[in-house]
């Protein structure tokens, strides 16, 4: 008896795939003619803005940086290759870089978007046994010892809940290296916690 589920060629692609294929077509079109970038811009605008807003306090600056991200994306669109890096993550990568540039130029305290749920998760990772409220406070205190890049890894991993693969693509390193870096960062936090 035939037990396999056969899917015929006429079976239409599910919505998500159709969307991805359509996006690649849009990108190719935009590579030829910049005006065609418009649907991509509207699709990703709010996501990029939110990404920037979580990292920068000044609302005006958020808007400016979001514009710069898209401007740079459009300028560098011919360099984008679909292989291995989804378009959205490519934009996040540019945004991440722009936020870094912003703080290098402006001597301001870095804004860190924190979710208490993520703090608890880190606390559990550190196998801290204190009460919840204290846990969050202690973890928050230890986070202060992190370098900006380490902090970004923690934010993207624990607060924004990004997958390792996605994070690796945004940061521009391979996944193994990323796992090791996150592991080291957690170890650093653990040492900090013990010290306090």
């Amino acid at each position: 008896m035939e037990t396999h589920l056969s899917i015929s060629d006429s079976y239409s692609l599910p919505a998500k795939d159709r969307a991805e294929n359509a996006e690649w077509t849009e990108i190719q079109r935009a590579m030829e003619q910049l005006e065609a970038f418009e649907p991509l811009y509207y699709r990703y605008y709010s996501r990029i803005y939110e990404f920037v807003q979580r990292r920068i306090a000044n609302t005006d600056d958020c808007g400016d940086i979001t514009s710069i991200v898209f401007e740079k994306a459009m300028k560098n669109l011919p360099k984008y290759k679909a292989q291995g890096l989804p378009f959205g993550n490519w934009l996040f990568r540019i945004a991440w870089s722009e936020v870094g540039n912003y703080y290098r130029q402006q001597q301001k305290n870095r804004k860190v978007w924190v979710q208490s749920e993520g703090l608890l998760e880190i606390a559990t990772e550190l196998e801290d046994t204190a009460e919840e409220n204290n846990e969050s406070k202690r973890v928050l205190k230890t986070l202060e010892a992190l370098e900006p890049e380490e902090m970004e890894l923690i934010v993207m991993r624990y607060f924004e809940k990004r997958s390792y693969a996605e994070l690796a693509q945004i940061v521009g390193i391979n996944e193994s290296t990323l796992r090791v870096r996150i592991h080291r960062t957690i170890e650093k936090l653990r040492k900090q916690l013990l010290r306090k």
């Binding site: 910049l34 970038f37 418009e38 514009s67 459009m74 870095r110 924190v114 208490s116 010892a145 902090m151």
Partner: peptide, 28 residues
């Protein structure tokens, strides 16, 4: 040491400003 301002469980932010593609296109 880098200084951080932690924004813990922030309230919903105001909506982003309206996107202006033409402006960005012009700049690009």
């Amino acid at each position: 040491m880098t200084k951080y301002d932690f924004d813990i469980d922030p309230a919903p932010r105001p909506a982003p400003p309206a996107p202006d593609f033409k402006k960005v296109l012009k700049r690009a």
